[in-house]
Write a protein that binds this DNA or RNA. Structure first.
Lengths: 109, 109
DNA sequence: TATATATATCGCAATATTACGATATTGAAT
DNA sequence: ATTCAATATCGTAATATTGCGATATATATA
């Protein structure tokens, strides 16, 4: 017990849920917003901005990278992170398909 | 350690993240999709549909209720669950504000 | 080459989540 | 009143997540 039974769901449900799960942490939302506003940033900027330990920021960046929503490229001794436009647009589409569906009038409530 | 430092984020970031967190589980995505398709359902329908224990489904329903996205009303000896339209629309707006923002061209990647 | 800077990774402790059996609780039917 | 059916809640075991210090790695600079 304690482990999500992914095998009983549709691939699409697992995929959407895992994207949402990664986004479901305030640090990762804050990181995305910062990158979007600044266009790009390095890990240390986020350490200062958010006040979390460097190891913690690095871990959150890794999770965001794992779903492809950000990308890092080495620039001298630092790593420049920015939004991966293609993935961002794919996510927009995926989320819109789910969230922007019309919900019919309640039958019971 | 082990606990999310909500105090260092903006209220909006915490709120958005906690909504996404609740949605970031395939069972809850599946439950929402089932309710949307069927217009409404009772807990036992979901137990049969998903094959999770009744206690587990009940717990997921509780979490969905906690963010207000579904609502349950007693109907005889069962409880009829359906989407709370107002909340659903609020969420649409909230998610669209975040996800449908335009992301500028990469500076480094 | 030595040192400083930036990031990634490891290992760990604290906490949270997931799933489920057992057990209430509540209303319907007999 | 008793039984059945549907749901909620409690307690618990297994697992996952969060955050951080310590350390490794890699590049720039003196």
């Amino acid at each position: 017990m304690g482990v999500t039974k992914t095998e009983i769901y549709k691939d699409e449900q697992n995929k959407l849920a895992s994207l949402l799960k990664v986004l479901g942490h305030p640090a990762r939302i804050a990181i995305l917003q910062y990158i979007i506003n600044q266009k790009a940033c390095i890990c240390n900027d986020l350490v200062e901005e958010l006040g979390l330990a460097q190891a913690t920021i690095s871990q959150h960046l890794k999770e965001l990278k794992s779903i492809g929503i950000i990308q890092g490229s080495i620039e001298g001794k630092s790593v420049c992170y920015c939004i991966e436009e293609k993935a961002w647009k794919d996510f927009q589409e995926e989320f819109n398909t789910f969230f922007n569906q019309d919900v019919k009038v309640n039958q019971c409530c």
